[in-house]
Amino acid sequence: MEHLIRVQNDYDRQVLAWLRARMGDAALQSAAGRLAGARKPYLSTICRSLGIRPPTRREFARETARTHSAVGDQYLARIRAILAAPAGAAR
């Protein structure tokens, strides 16, 4: 999708992934096609044309932190299970 839309940084990549999940590739391709002139349209222009306000950087950071916490909790639960098992059962 980056071949159709100007993506300049990690935040833009997160917004693009969010838009693809929310709107679908076909809608983004259509919007990019309508807005494309001599250059690729900016992601913010695509969002405005679709009437969508993307999550802020802070909201993306919160979601990432929740994901990291969930993964960490899974690893800790697995470690606790290994440590709680009898010595011969772990091998």
Rank of each mutant, 00 (worst) to 15 (best):
M1P: 12
M1Y: 08
L4S: 08
I5P: 06
V7S: 07
Q8Y: 00
N9M: 03
D10N: 11
D10L: 07
Q14A: 09
V15I: 12
L19S: 04
R20F: 04
A21M: 07
M23K: 14
G24H: 09
G24V: 10
G24F: 11
A26E: 14
A27H: 05
A27D: 12
A27I: 13
Q29I: 14
S30E: 13
S30W: 04
A31W: 03
A32M: 07
A32Q: 05
G33H: 08
G33E: 09
G33A: 12
G33I: 07
R34Y: 07
R34W: 03
A36T: 15
G37A: 14
G37D: 13
A38P: 12
R39V: 08
K40F: 05
K40R: 15
K40I: 10
K40H: 11
K40C: 09
Y42S: 12
Y42I: 02
T45D: 15
S49L: 08
L50Q: 14
G51W: 07
R53W: 04
R53F: 05
P55C: 11
T56M: 07
R57H: 13
R58K: 11
E59M: 14
F60W: 05
A61I: 03
A61P: 01
E63K: 05
A65H: 08
V71K: 10
G72T: 08
G72V: 00
D73F: 05
Y75A: 06
Y75R: 11
Y75N: 05
L76F: 05
L76C: 02
A77H: 05
I79N: 01
A81R: 12
A81F: 00
I82Y: 05
L83A: 08
A85D: 10
A85K: 09
A85Q: 12
P86V: 00
A87Y: 00
G88K: 06
G88M: 01
G88P: 00
A90E: 03
A90T: 13
R91P: 00
